[in-house]
Design a protein around this nucleic acid. Structure first.
Lengths: 225, 225
DNA sequence: GGCGGTATCGCATGAACGTGTGGTTTTGGG
DNA sequence: CCCAAAACCACACGTTCATGCGATACCGCC
């Protein structure tokens, strides 16, 4: 394997895109040949790239075509390129779709930059990096399926707690999962309505959601996955 | 998940065993309850352990019973424990055997200690850590087998509503379970916001709930119970 | 033709929620 | 002892939701 590896990034959120760009391109192992904010833009700009990308780091949740839908289109243009998915979603369905579509790995967005770099290098070396929580989906599918409720304590927090929820926050989340209103949660724990709000706010930030419904949807997916 | 996690190590090579022991047990997240040099020794000493291990880090190449052969025996004694394999072998056959036997992950012995620690924590959080080169075997096996083996169906029908939901209403409910707002549900089905409201109203009456949260809580309970 | 059920849509009002901004008190290390 | 993190509280504003009251249209069926 020869360095630098030609790298392309597809990510719609400017902040994340810039962070990835700045960090990865500062590494001697990589050379960024194309940075796009959508699959469409990527394909459009591809002919103008200084070199064909060997590695493509792509978001899934993109405007227009999703990252998953983009994989076959990208591979049609770049048969030798390897696509590594980056996503905030940790549900089995999306993981399977991505792998079936031809992705070689699947990382969650809370992966630290340094690990992300390592994973990209491992892709180039023939690996299939996956965030460990993601890997379990694949293992279970591989096993045909035998959903063992593995963790004894069951942290309903989330698969890969970049920022772990505090004990208090977990209690609040349990209240939401029980279908309670903020008012009832407040009464259950003898705290004020605003305090509940405050905790919820922090939970939403940590879990990257912005409504009760999204929070519960995340729990639902995790239980089905 | 509560710390420290009760950890056991099975490794025959004294040097590696001591390295793992010293490093991991120095971490506040872990508490070493049993260090053995073979599966047989592990099982023998298990009753004398200060606490039942929650995580077991086991080598594969052991004298006597191999680590893989040991998994079912260990799980018979510790149904809630999770076994993470550690091996110098990176061949597909052994990986598959280990996973089939019940291992939750498979790491190579060249994994840095810091990463090993992270992987163990991820196991406790429900992950399936695998060294990236190992992961590709599993992905390929996954892709090689039945395209849609068992995505765990949608038993949404088998709730017990005295009044059954119509097809349309079920679609709307699915939208809610995906965490969408009324607006997004309306867009998804090309109907107006008020129509969504109308359907939801009927669903709430039929299922005897009066908020999104209660509806989702009902779904959650049904899936757990 | 009339009748019931489903699907569609509109409007209005109060409650619940999400989010921004600011605080204080408590608590567990360094 | 001080700092940082967690828990607690408050106010304000806009958005979303829950629910009431309508309405029209299609379809199968007796």
């Amino acid at each position: 394997m020869q360095f630098p590896l030609a790298l392309a990034i597809i990510e719609d959120q400017a902040a994340i895109r810039e962070t990835l760009h700045e960090y990865l391109c500062a590494q001697p192992e990589f050379r960024c040949v194309l940075i796009s904010e959508s699959v469409e833009a990527f394909l459009w700009d591809l002919p103008a790239a200084p070199a064909p990308p060997q590695l493509i780091l792509s978001d899934i949740g993109l405007p227009g075509l999703t990252g998953i839908e983009g994989i076959p289109l990208i591979q049609a243009q770049l048969p030798d390129a390897q696509v590594l998915m980056l996503s905030v979603y940790a549900d089995a369905e999306r993981v399977f779709e991505a792998l079936r579509a031809g992705a070689v790995g699947y990382l969650l967005k809370n992966t630290p930059l340094a690990q992300l770099k390592e994973h990209l290098l491992q892709v180039a070396a023939g690996g299939s990096p996956m965030s460990p929580g993601v890997a379990r989906f694949v293992v279970q599918a591989f096993l045909g399926q035998s959903p063992q409720p593995a963790p004894a304590g069951i942290p309903l927090a989330n698969l890969l707690p970049e920022e772990p929820l505090t004990a208090r926050e977990l209690e609040i989340v349990r209240g939401i999962e029980d279908g309670l209103s903020y008012k009832l949660i407040a009464e259950r724990h003898y705290i004020s309505l605003d305090t509940v709000r405050s905790h919820i706010r922090n939970v939403y930030r940590k879990l990257q959601v912005n409504s009760k419904a999204e929070l519960m949807a995340q729990t639902l997916k995790r239980q089905r996955g």
